[in-house]
């Protein structure tokens, strides 16, 4: 039986899902815009407390991993299975590197008494509370997406190694890659808005 696979249909489905993700984060950026307008001074002070070096490092990690994921799609189409597997493995490690950095970053903030509902934020200025509230909400939700992205890349790697992702049929890898790039897209906005404000 010759079963046709509608690759276009699968891809449209994935994009529609990505649109819903874009609108989800878009809603959070509306909150950011409105509160930045109301408390510009506290957003500026809050941003200075975030670690620029870790932020920049994580930006570079995500950009490089996006490049290796895009390259792995090229590799699979050219039938270079080993190269594709190596690129995917590297991207997965980048994902973990991002999370480790995030762990240290959040850890340092929590040590300074900056976490949702902490005494310092609740009794302090509302502007500061809102800045860090948005910071934890948006970077937290983004972090969850990084974890899901790692799972999808791991699945693609397993399917590649077991011969179920091939040069003829690589939609799973392609769509996992799209998801990973979306994670990168969101970070591209999060980074200047939180770490580099004013």
């Amino acid at each position: 039986m010759n079963r046709e696979i509608d690759t276009t249909g699968i891809k449209i489905g994935m994009w529609i899902f990505l649109y819903s993700e874009i609108i989800l984060f878009g809603g959070l950026f509306v909150l950011y815009a409105v509160y930045l307008h109301r408390y510009p001074q506290f957003f500026s002070e809050g941003g200075k407390e975030l670690d620029r070096i870790i932020g920049t490092l994580n930006t570079v990690i995500l950009l490089v991993s996006s490049f290796t994921v895009a390259s792995s799609v090229t590799a699979v189409q050219r039938g270079e299975k080993k190269k594709c597997a190596a690129l995917l493995l590297f991207s997965i490690l980048c994902g973990f590197g991002f999370l480790v950095n995030k762990y240290f970053e959040w850890g340092a903030k929590i040590d300074h008494g900056i976490y949702p509902n902490s005494e310092r934020l609740v009794n302090g200025e509302p502007g500061e509370n809102i800045f860090f509230g948005l910071y934890y909400l948006i970077t937290g939700l983004h972090g969850l997406h990084v974890i899901v992205g790692i799972v999808l890349l791991c699945l693609s790697l397993v399917l590649l190694l077991t011969g179920r992702v091939t040069a003829q049929r690589f939609t799973m890898l392609d769509n996992s890659g799209l998801y990973w790039h979306l994670v990168d897209l969101i970070w591209i906005f999060v980074f200047p808005l939180f770490y580099l404000v004013l």
């Binding site: 996006s66 490049f67 994921v69 895009a70 890659g177 790039h181 990168d184 897209l185 591209i188 906005f189």
Partner: peptide, 8 residues
Amino acid sequence: VTLVLLFF
């Protein structure tokens, strides 16, 4: 973002 979207 445009670069990522168009190429990656």
